[in-house]
Design a binder for these strands. Structure first.
Length: 565
DNA sequence: CTAGGGTTAG
């Protein structure tokens, strides 16, 4: 505060509008309320000021209750009031309340107002109603759609995991955007969209555009880029973008730590974490989850446990279910299943989060062939009686892994009988910015090149046998239940796993020397992992596979995960 | 008095 030469005047001698707004801006809502309550007949601007004060302080319910109160007192909301109300509904992610606000803007004839409509787009987006958001966006007159409107719609897609739709809309900006230039909001959303759907080609283009548009120093865009490169299998690029950030704050550090973790670079992640702490940047719960994740994926089990035990005292952050789940997973991955069980019991996690925790334990039991504990964990999972599909698949896999194929098949056929299905496993690969998706046993995506892919895979299998490969790339391999190749009761025979098909296609169509990047919506299985290692030697190429939850970088017969994942 | 962006286990 600069010192004033004038004598101090008490706040209440100023015009009340200014005082009320000032209190609201400082978040001094008790004072704001006191001033407001002392007014005789507050007009719509006072009401709206108070409302936006509550909304900005995160007190959205109180903001919305003012809407009713002002009407009871006979004051009609204006377009600003309703925009503020829509934004409060957005924070609450409440489409029901938001729809009421929407209806009132229509009745009052303000649907053409850019600010109001944009607030509604954001509200529907945050409430998970993307189609409603798009309807409002499309309903705006083209001239009314400004940069903020485009940014809100792009964010709505990105935040609802509709990355391809966001990319598509960003392309439409060029044609229908009336010359609007992409700004930092649009760019960060689109980069984040590319991350979500692992579209490296588009992501690189947007990166270039951001640099040309002078947005190379925007920290939010940089974070999105770090995340995008990491999710597309380019850790080195992530690192380069991160290293260019001046004085990285919490989120950039968190983002690069998570990236390193996904690559199995546990030591780097820990080094970045101490650098961050040394720089005086306080970690939050997400950061600590990332560090735990790093320990988990690099086998730094005792370091991870120490962190879990000290995060409250050292950083003032109490472990929440996600931290426990990560630590349980870490112990399970390392084969320390008794300790994992103890921790899972200790965590006292409930509800949906408990389901995740026990599912990961069950998965570890299967990996380490501990049927005794798998049965226990399986019971806990099935108690939840929801998302049973993944639990049942894990149970079936646990039986199969110890050779009890009869039991495994019984679980599977029970699932079929009850109509329980799991999302089919699929892998995809980007060729000239177009994704090609492959399902297990179904090669149709390769189109005219199907036969070539199959021939190539046969040839590779022969060469792999010469090097001692015992498995099969496909055809008659007995199912490990890992990836379903469809229905009709033939669960014991699977075709080729989808990542092998994607790889075969990539080998055919991508130029020699280019790293082949395969994305997969499930975890990679051990057989395919071995196969990728061997093929990387045979064809002398590098492959990156993005798993459901991490990366494998294959090079000359070995993988970045050192077979620990 | 009003609208938009980034990180999160399995």
């Amino acid at each position: 505060m600069p010192s004033s030469s004038r004598p101090e005047s008490p706040p209440r001698s100023r015009p009340p509008t200014i005082s009320l707004a000032a209190y609201c801006r400082c978040g001094a809502m008790t004072s704001a309320r006191g001033l407001f309550d002392g007014m005789r007949d507050p007009d719509v601007v006072f009401w709206t000021t108070l409302m936006s004060g509550y909304a900005a302080s995160g007190r959205s319910r109180e903001a919305l209750s003012l809407l009713r109160a002002m009407e009871l007192s006979g004051v009609q909301p204006n377009v600003v009031t309703l925009s503020t109300a829509a934004s409060a509904c957005a924070r609450l992610a409440d489409a029901g309340l938001g729809r009421q606000v929407h209806a009132r803007t229509e009745v009052a004839g303000w649907s053409g107002n850019a600010v109001c409509a944009t607030a509604l787009v954001d509200m529907y987006g945050k409430a998970g109603r993307v189609e409603d958001a798009r309807a409002v966006f499309d309903g705006m007159d083209a001239p009314a759609r400004n940069a903020v409107s485009w940014g809100a719609m792009l964010a709505a897609y990105t935040q609802n995991a509709l990355g391809n739709e966001a990319i598509q809309l960003f392309a439409e900006l060029r044609t229908n955007g009336r010359g609007l230039a992409p700004n930092q909001f649009m760019l960060s959303s689109v980069v984040s969209a590319c991350a979500g759907v692992a579209r490296l080609g588009i992501g690189k283009c947007v990166h270039g555009a951001a640099l040309r548009l002078g947005q190379g120093n925007d920290e939010v865009i940089a974070v999105a880029l770090v995340d995008m490169y990491s999710k597309c299998g380019c850790y080195e690029y992530s690192r380069k973008v991160f290293d260019r950030i001046d004085q990285p704050s919490l989120i950039p550090y968190t983002s690069i730590i998570v990236s390193a973790a996904k690559y199995g670079h546990g030591r780097w992640a820990l080094a970045l974490f101490s650098e961050m702490v040394d720089q005086g940047v306080q970690p939050n719960d997400v950061t600590l989850l990332g560090v735990l994740h790093a320990c988990s994926h690099s086998g730094l089990v005792d370091t991870g446990l120490q962190l879990l035990r000290s995060m409250q005292s050292k950083y003032g952050i109490a472990p929440c279910p996600s931290h426990y789940t990560c630590a349980v997973d870490m112990l399970g991955r390392a084969g320390r299943l008794e300790e994992a069980f103890e921790l899972a019991m200790e965590a006292q996690v409930e509800g949906n989060e408990a389901l995740l925790l026990w599912n990961s334990l069950l998965s570890a039991c299967r990996t380490h062939k501990r049927l005794d504990l798998a049965t226990l964990a399986g019971q806990r999972v099935l108690e939840f009686n929801q998302d049973v599909a993944s639990g049942l698949v894990l149970m079936s896999n646990a039986y199969a892994s110890v050779g009890q194929t009869g039991n495994a098949d019984a679980v599977r056929s029970g699932m079929r009988r009850r109509g329980i299905r799991k999302d089919p496993g699929c892998s995809w690969i980007e060729v000239k910015d177009t994704p090609y998706v492959f399902y297990a046993g179904a090669i149709s995506c390769a189109g005219a090149r199907t036969d070539e892919v199959l021939t190539l895979l046969d040839e590779l299998e022969c060469k792999m046998r010469e090097r001692g490969y015992k498995g099969r790339l496909g055809r008659a391999r007995v199912s490990d239940g890992h990836e379903d190749d469809g229905d009709e009761g033939k669960g014991v025979m699977v075709g080729v796993h989808s990542e092998i098909l994607a790889l075969g296609f990539g080998l055919l169509v991508l130029p020699k020397g280019m790293t082949i990047r395969v994305m997969k919506n499930l975890r990679m299985c051990c057989d395919c992992h071995e196969a990728f290692k061997l093929i990387s030697v045979i064809v002398e190429r590098e492959f990156v596979v993005r798993d459901l939850n991490r990366f494998h970088h294959f090079q000359m017969g070995s993988c970045s995960c050192s077979d620990y994942w």
